[in-house]
Simulated assay, not measured.
Amino acid sequence: MKLVKIAAALGFAFVGAASVGVAHAQSAVVKVDGSSTVYPITEAVAEDFQKAKKNAVKVTVGISGTGGGFKKFCRGETDISDASRPILKKEMDACKEAGIAYYELPIAYDALTVIVNPQNTFASTLSVADLKKIWEPAAQGKITNWNQVNPSFPDMPLKLYGAGSDSGTFDYFTEAIVGKAKSSRGDYTASEDDNVLVQGVARDKGGLGYFGFAYYVENQKKLKAVAIDGGKGGVLPSPQAVENGTYSPLSRPIFIYVNAKSLDKPEVKEFVDFYLKNAPKLVKEVKYVPLPSKVYEANTERLTKKKVGTVFGGEEAVGMKIEELVHREAKL
């Protein structure tokens, strides 16, 4: 996985062009856009799929953020939307108004990771209350130094880096930490491109940021993960902590949404089938947490039985453990 491939321009990125060659002029195209968190998985699937199809199908993958991706998806501009949170009520309404039915397919779990600069030796653990104090709207222009977070911390400027407002990571983090989605101070470096955030914290001794676990793993030589204390002591992000439910409240399911009409196109159907078949291996390869096999099997069954819609009712999935997701998905 090379996350540095993500284009800073946030337009459609042609996945794997260097490795798979220039696509034939008559290639069928599968259009994907959305979450930068889900991007590494979809990129890996797309590269392998294009190789398997010998360039007969081209897959384009954009990183407009979950919200930006759903805007395009609900206008019928894309076949698949990568999402780091469930579809929201307003997005459900937009899709319904446009006559777009969709399949909701959970594909992995993420440990949303809070990171600091490696030179930071004092903030090894932060509580949810500490993070709320830093990120809540009332902190804007006021909590600007580390010793304002905790008197034991040094007198050092606090520089913040986080997801942009079109990001599902922004929605999830603010709801899990602040208590309300999109409720955040605005005086921070924001981007839907997680590599911008990586570079910012890596260069800033007083930096603090957050993004998907895969971006931390890819850059752990220049970043330091913070243990999160959700009330039972600090827990570092890891696949094991996600699986056993101890990394809370920043563990979350991540998804792809498939346009039901697009699935009638052979190239989209083949890509989605390939995605579900290869997800367990590739999810692990790019450092996210694979779901139990019965979830991927349920996804395939959902497509076969044409069960469209969402099991989340337009709400976030904060604090949802893997077994809870499995139980809920079985109800659709």
Rank of each mutant, 00 (worst) to 15 (best):
K307F: 09
K232W: 10
S35M: 08
L332P: 05
A227N: 01
S167W: 08
K222N: 09
E243C: 00
P280M: 02
P292T: 07
K287T: 12
K72C: 02
G186T: 13
K284F: 02
D166P: 02
S167F: 12
K90P: 06
G319I: 07
V311L: 10
S84P: 01
L105A: 04
S191W: 07
S35V: 08
E324N: 12
I134D: 03
A317P: 03
S36N: 15
P118A: 10
R328N: 13
N147Q: 06
A181N: 02
K133Q: 09
L282I: 15
I100K: 06
A214R: 07
N299L: 11
G309P: 12
V30P: 12
Q220S: 13
N244H: 01
K159I: 15
D82L: 15
G207D: 05
A241N: 04
R302K: 04
D110M: 03
N120T: 02
K307Q: 15
L208M: 14
V283M: 02
G179N: 01
I256D: 01
T189C: 07
M92W: 08
L105D: 10
G21N: 08
K5V: 10
K277L: 02
T144M: 11
G16H: 11
F14D: 09
K31G: 12
V116Q: 05
G62C: 10
A28Q: 10
Y102I: 04
A317V: 03
G162L: 06
F153D: 01
A46D: 08
E323V: 02
G230N: 07
D273S: 05
I115K: 02
